[in-house]
Design a protein around this nucleic acid. Structure first.
Lengths: 137, 137
DNA sequence: TATCGTTATATATTTTAAAATATAACGATA
DNA sequence: TATCGTTATATTTTAAAATATATAACGATA
């Protein structure tokens, strides 16, 4: 068969104008993104779990933390459970029954994780701001 | 009512051991993430659309590009359409009918976008590698 | 020992997203 | 003018994810 190359002809990059000019005027374009830790291909510590841990620490309860985030208890518990299994030692210590029916507290390891994630998030925020600046310059 | 503070007692960060030691031994933890451009809260240029554009440029067809990515034509067309509407000028020029039934070609603006995204991805990859290094040090 | 709200778990339901299917219009070419 | 594969679009079907509901176990406290 004959070779038709009309549509195979590729467009190539020639000039290098400002990227900003490609977008419609008036709309503000920014670079955004998401970060997470993964082990063996599995995400296990993104923005959701971090916030959940922070709220568990504040409320003393998985249930209360989930409600604050409008997350189902089931999902919250699964996040906690997955996280506990990935770490050398549990980061959330649950107590079923007892005063107020029970509750959950964080270990110091959880606090270290949270703190580390905060610092990482700050560096990422700086990266994103720089990229947005580059985009709009 | 009386104030019960047992569960409200918050765990606080005391020492600052290596984060690496928090994870089970043997599992390799790395920092990963995703980047995209957004305008007015709408993601409109992430990894998916970029790859789609690259493949449209190579195949000359939205349909063929979608098949290569195992993406439905509908989704591919919607990505292209959204992208075209966000830009000052269309980045994909479709032709319905004609030789081989039609096809699509990229504008030079599309090529600039692709090139920009490649460079941004490289910077992001470096950022992620550095974060992974910090995590494991 | 009865009460309480929480943890832990299973199951059912709803919602959402994705994929599959169908069909018309299109225009260069033979 | 008939053919072709693509674009463009609507509709249906399927799959996945999220949510809702239900229930038992738990243990400090009154």
């Amino acid at each position: 068969m004959g070779i038709k190359i009309k549509h195979a002809r590729k467009t190539e990059l020639l000039m290098n104008d400002s990227i900003k000019n490609l977008f419609k005027e008036g709309i503000q374009v920014k670079v955004n993104g998401s970060l997470w830790l993964q082990a063996g291909g599995i995400h296990f510590f993104g923005p959701g779990p971090v916030e959940l841990l922070e709220r568990i620490n504040e409320t003393g309860s998985i249930n209360a933390a989930a409600k604050e985030m409008k997350m189902s208890y089931k999902k919250a518990w699964e996040l906690v459970n997955t996280l506990n299994q990935q770490m050398k030692a549990p980061v959330v210590i649950p107590q079923t029954g007892g005063e107020k029916g029970g509750g959950s507290t964080l270990t110091s390891e959880a606090m270290q994780l949270i703190q580390y994630h905060r610092e990482m998030r700050q560096r990422f925020a700086a990266f994103l701001e720089n990229e947005t600046r580059l985009l709009n310059q």
